[in-house]
Design a protein around this nucleic acid. Sequence first.
DNA 1: GTGAAAGCGCTAACAG
DNA 2: CTGTTAGCGCTTTCAC
Lengths: 342, 342
Amino acid sequence: MTKKKVSIDDIAKSLGVSKTLVSLVINSKAEKHGISKITQKKVWDKVEELNYKPNMMARSLRLGKSNTIGLIVSDISNPFYSKMARQIEDLAQKKGYNLIICSTDENIEKELTLIKMLKGRQVDGLIISSSQKKSEELNALLKDNYPSVFIDRCIPRLKANYVTVDNTRGAYEAVEHLIQQGYDKIAAFAISPIHVSTINDRIQGYLRAVKDHEKTYNNSLLVEIPFNNIKASVKKEMKKIHDAKESVRAIFALNNHIAIACLEAAQEMKIRIPDDIALVSFDDIDAFRLTSPSVTAVMQPLDEICDHAVKILFHEITNKTELEKKHIVLQTRLVIRRSSVL
Amino acid sequence: MTKKKVSIDDIAKSLGVSKTLVSLVINSKAEKHGISKITQKKVWDKVEELNYKPNMMARSLRLGKSNTIGLIVSDISNPFYSKMARQIEDLAQKKGYNLIICSTDENIEKELTLIKMLKGRQVDGLIISSSQKKSEELNALLKDNYPSVFIDRCIPRLKANYVTVDNTRGAYEAVEHLIQQGYDKIAAFAISPIHVSTINDRIQGYLRAVKDHEKTYNNSLLVEIPFNNIKASVKKEMKKIHDAKESVRAIFALNNHIAIACLEAAQEMKIRIPDDIALVSFDDIDAFRLTSPSVTAVMQPLDEICDHAVKILFHEITNKTELEKKHIVLQTRLVIRRSSVL
DNA sequence: GTGAAAGCGCTAACAG
DNA sequence: CTGTTAGCGCTTTCAC
């Protein structure tokens, strides 16, 4: 049978003192109020004896803060995000905060619903890797100056804190690397929804690199892979490239899922990487060191991203005044491995 | 400037009705109380207009349930657990629950602290992959019949719900597979803390398989890799095996981290897998399909584990009476890939 | 059909 | 040094 929970009142009653007193002791405000050591000890002993744990829900309601922050990403099982989650968890923990993690599956509506839900739950702040196309709803949801910081992706015209990487430049460097390896026609495999800023920026970087180095470009080189059918369509596209016996000999995968699909497709179709086709990916994940071949990838400074995001968020949480929105852009680093070097 | 939050009272006041009425409408209990359609509409319109969102914290306090469940694992960035987390998140979401995720780093004390913290936060239930050695503290913490289910690992003498896999048998099959491939001396790389039931059971499975098939065994074949120094010690151990030119030609890695370290070490030291040394791992992760070579691994039915765990947990949450503890043991499946087949 | 009032467990003025 | 009281925002019994 579930025992009734013990409350601060139980402690107070059984000690013949007031709730206030107990509350003060428990919250280490006893000294400040000059409560006698002996009374303090009595309280603590009783707390121990009855195994009392303050009800944080009640405390939160009273204090108007939940010591919880919400983390919204497209999919927490994506290693890129789970690594982030862990980092953020640790940083939050240090400040006495916990994390409610939610996955959106890139679903715009779901994301909006989740934000509302988390606000309803009174989370003190939000860290969001958003899939929104437009800023209207988000601006509306956050117009009450709700502490929040957007990571990874930017939303046009959204007035918010951002911590992102220079996706354009990261992509530029990746493509430039392929060019330096002697490749001319380079295909880019983008992932839908293509409106996502990271993807869009990477495409821009790709285009600019190709243009700057006066390499061949035509529309067929930029293919869009639907995110709910990655495997099959990557395979189809690779086959197309391979069969065409065209001069397309290198692929720039715009995220880790695509690169993995390329690897799998290549394996199935006996296409050799990098011998037949070279491969470079955005997003460095652990697995890329171990795959066959290991994959050249644009690494994002995960820890730094999280550090900044958490710092900004807590700053907003603590200083509830209207603060200037920050936009931090970090640099990526190209990690060269076997998939792009003959 | 942060706007004051709008409460149920604001709705009531501005409509000239009582909080009760508003509450009833909002919680879809209007029909039951025969509240006129027209009043209902007025309420909903006002809710819309003021953009009112009920304060879940207050509701939870009143109702004595938070609609939150706590998930405790050793490290949420481990793909094994992040996949689980995602699955559990989805199942919980369907029931209107959210997840607070916490990582313990296998730290016994931290785990205990986290459980207390989550109880203090009034989470309605707990799903735990525990690192405890003994059951005393856990039994004490859960003696109030707190809804909870333990996954992945068992704690001796802990009276609790469990959902686990048959680790002994999984390991047995993995080792038997190596034996069938013609290997005699098979090393097992266990990970500390070795008291964890999963690891212990896998060791038992390993030992039994070796014994049943009358293969060579001596203590040096069972090595313990400290979990905070996996990479270096795996490398050392592999070197030892390789240098010894002994007949040890196969390694059974007791979890995915170890297997990955083996792969990396092999790569660095130019040891060929499976040619020089064969490798089989427990825990199948996505990366194992793509590594070089692909890794033979014991797959756990993740989705099933989560389904059972969530179902049991919600059953306990709903029926607060003392229920018989359940222990579900699921079967693993050996996925044979290149790392163990010449 | 609707409202008044109590109370979930806690903290913080304010009093003495 | 300690206690009284009000109230965070909500649900629910009971009354009209």
